[in-house]
Computed example of a mutant assay.
Amino acid sequence: MTELVLLALAGFVGGAMNALAGGGSFVTLPALIAAGVPSVAANTSSSVALYPAGAVSAWVYRGGLTRVCGVPLRPTLAVTLVGGLMGALLLLWTPSTIFDRVLPWLLLSATATLFFGPRLRTLVQRRFQASATLILSLQFMLGVYGGYFGGAVGLMMMSAWSLLDEADVKSLNPVKTLLVTAANTVAIICFAVAGAVDWGAAAALGTGAIIGGYGGAHLGRRLPAAVIRWATLIATAAITVAFFGRAYFTG
């Protein structure tokens, strides 16, 4: 019983983090592993558990949906769904040991992009034209990442978009939440069909995540953009340090 309560609390924190900035799996994945769930099953179960919270947050944010760097939402959503499907299949069919080594560097890139984004934006926009092809290709890769692992995928989306668009982090939150939920939709269907989910642990985690996601989304609509940006930076830095430790200094 105590274990289920702790999982629910971890879900609450993870759901709120995802709604505000992203990186909720930083809390939920270690909680599942600590509860005795094998790492691959913990990864899939975390995605399943956080899905309802993401859907609730997307519903709260529905009035703020906008284009992604000038690209209409429908094609962006479509490539995210296809990428999420491919990423989920990769997770089920290939070992994750190599990706565990690459992941911290991806997160470090996300942290640097968010931190230096305002300064790098002008340089990037001089060298690269933010065409629909570039945006959709980038979003497809982010969808693959979301389906395969998903850790901090929301943070990585906002990092990439911030280099190509003038919009602030707060205004990107609604569409980020929707697209993360889209990638997770096809992923969890694959995980469920493959029997790769610990449903008991996911249910406890998900219950807390729904409450946290709902509250976090409402809070995210009210907080100033600067507060959300700095919260995002702090969360990303913490996640990066933790995953470097997990990949290179444990086991």
Results as ranks from 00 to 15, higher is better:
T2K: 08
E3Q: 14
V5Y: 12
L9M: 13
G11N: 02
F12T: 08
G15W: 09
G15L: 09
M17L: 15
A19Q: 00
A19G: 00
A21K: 09
I33C: 01
A35Q: 11
G36C: 04
S39E: 15
A42E: 11
S46P: 01
Y51M: 15
G54W: 07
G54V: 10
V56K: 03
V60Q: 14
V60K: 12
Y61A: 03
R62E: 00
G63F: 10
G64A: 11
T66S: 14
T66Y: 00
P72Q: 06
T76C: 15
V79C: 04
T80A: 14
G87F: 03
T94Y: 13
S96F: 12
T97D: 15
I98L: 15
D100K: 14
R101M: 11
L107T: 01
S109N: 10
A112R: 06
A112N: 08
F115G: 09
G117W: 04
P118S: 10
P118C: 03
L120M: 13
Q125G: 14
R126D: 08
F128Y: 05
Q129H: 10
S131M: 06
A132H: 03
A132E: 05
A132P: 01
A132N: 04
L134Q: 05
L134A: 11
L134N: 06
I135C: 12
L136G: 04
S137K: 03
G143V: 08
G143S: 10
G146A: 13
Y148V: 00
G151Q: 10
V153R: 01
M156P: 00
M157C: 00
M158Y: 04
S159V: 02
A160Y: 13
A160F: 14
W161C: 13
S162K: 04
L164M: 12
D168C: 05
K170P: 13
N173S: 11
T177L: 12
T177I: 14
V180L: 10
A183Y: 01
T185F: 15
T185H: 05
V186F: 07
F191Q: 07
G195T: 07
A196E: 15
D198P: 03
W199P: 01
W199N: 06
A201R: 07
A201D: 03
A204Q: 04
G206H: 08
G206S: 09
T207H: 06
T207C: 15
G208H: 09
A209K: 03
I210R: 05
I210L: 15
G213R: 06
Y214T: 08
A217N: 07
G220Q: 06
R221Q: 13
R221E: 12
R221G: 01
R222A: 12
R222P: 02
P224E: 07
R229M: 05
W230I: 02
W230C: 02
W230M: 10
W230Y: 14
A235D: 01
A235E: 00
A238Q: 08
I239T: 15
T240F: 05
T240V: 02
V241F: 09
F243D: 06
G245D: 11
A247M: 07
